[in-house]
Write a protein that binds this DNA or RNA. Sequence first.
DNA 1: TAAGTTATGATATAAAATTACATTACCTAC
DNA 2: GTAGGTAATGTAATTTTATATCATAACTTA
Lengths: 284, 284
Amino acid sequence: MNTLEKVQKSLTQFSKSERKVAEVILASPQTAIHSSIATLAKMADVSEPTVNRFCRRLDTKGFPDFKLHLAQSLANGTPYVSRHVEEDDTPESYTTKIFESSMASLDTARQSLDTSAINKAVDILTQAKTISFFGLGASASVAHDAQNKFFRFNVPVICFDDVLMQRMSCINCNEGDVVVLISHTGRTKSLIEIARIARENGAAVIGITARNSPLSYECTLPVTMEVPEDTDMYLPMASRLAQLVTIDVLATGFTLRRGPRFRDNLKRVKEVLKESRVNKDLTI
Amino acid sequence: MNTLEKVQKSLTQFSKSERKVAEVILASPQTAIHSSIATLAKMADVSEPTVNRFCRRLDTKGFPDFKLHLAQSLANGTPYVSRHVEEDDTPESYTTKIFESSMASLDTARQSLDTSAINKAVDILTQAKTISFFGLGASASVAHDAQNKFFRFNVPVICFDDVLMQRMSCINCNEGDVVVLISHTGRTKSLIEIARIARENGAAVIGITARNSPLSYECTLPVTMEVPEDTDMYLPMASRLAQLVTIDVLATGFTLRRGPRFRDNLKRVKEVLKESRVNKDLTI
DNA sequence: TAAGTTATGATATAAAATTACATTACCTAC
DNA sequence: GTAGGTAATGTAATTTTATATCATAACTTA
């Protein structure tokens, strides 16, 4: 846990003087990390050893070590003590909280992502005759995004967000086709069925989903990750971000595998898109 | 800039002994932040004042201050010196780089986001008779995602990724309708036109786009942000993440404005979705 | 190679943090 | 209500750490 959150959370467990220290730190953490123990002690109106004891109570080796930990928890901008959106949050605060929790989720996702699976997935994708991206609900947008990316690679790409179209497409799969299934839970019935159908027809099935989920067992290659649940608002938020970045990683792996000449091609695609834009100098 | 990157980048500008210090730090930054100046000097086989001079050369006040900065740059996990994907990156390294640069972009985006615009946008959205989300290319997926979210709010939502359908929809706009246009560059001709059409028909037009872009000038309310260019791979990556999180923020603001009873409703929507899933206990 | 410049290190000093111990405040049992 | 104990806090001494000063060494350039 974030050190600043820890200070906040332990507030009740501190002694009177230690609480004074905690309050001074919470009031202005940025000042705290740039102060000496003497300065901080004076600010909290306690003695220096008290500050030191306070630091040790938070499982640090001493004051300098505590400052280091605190500095790290402040690294990503505003020090919101909690990232959970509350009823009375201001626009300012819920905006920050959502951005911060999104970043934190990406960090968690990355740590749980198995890069050897990524590598294998890139292998499979580079050899694909066609690539299909299927997802439902929030994951449908992710599939849509993947289509947009891989389409630029000049590979035949399929993307449906309709259950029946997905199924029909999988029934017509052949050896050499690759199906990428996207599902946060890995429990969506129709996707699990589709995975089996595609596999039975000789297609390689990559699943961007949860570890040990039913879907992951039905895939040729599960690319699994752990993403904190989106509990706050009952809306899928963090999960699809992690999926999108995973798509980015696969796309990047793909282009790296294809070499530099291939990337010039991508550059050209981007150049062409510019024609649909108004000129930079033109302000309408 | 990240302090560790700075150390790497300044490597050529250091003197011989200072470079020794830099190398020791780059080799194991985690060790560095937990060492005293004496330990580090010994590791680099230089004198203590040299280490101190090294720190000052990097615009810090001294060794402790330098450690603080370094600690912050290590806060988010793996200390990749550069976040730019290179030809010979391993899957491990490009995965980390992409995740890290995604997180960094979100941070930049948040800092440039004007929360008062967010608040006004929420105002407008809560009063909308219908909400339309339009984007093209990569932004189409974002619009798609927004549709998925706002649909759960039981508000009439429209989403098209077809230029003509978008245009027709805007021609039929009325007072009380809200059109949300999503474009990273804010220079996509057809969206700029649509903005004007919708506005002329009395709709409120919210633009999730770049500050001072042609599109931003055509909107009733521009919600602008600054996102680092996606230069590495010629693929849109960071931009759409920032857009998605902005949608999350708007959706959250929306639900907060509607109060707690409304959120119970969202919970019910989520419950119903569970029926399309296989049971948790079932392992297929 | 001599003069000047810059880089580096040894030593001294100052600052900071920690330890050990003393004192105070607080609680409980009688 | 007070004696005895315990936990909290502070004072002062000690140790550790960082910085400033100055001397020396290495390197440049004429």
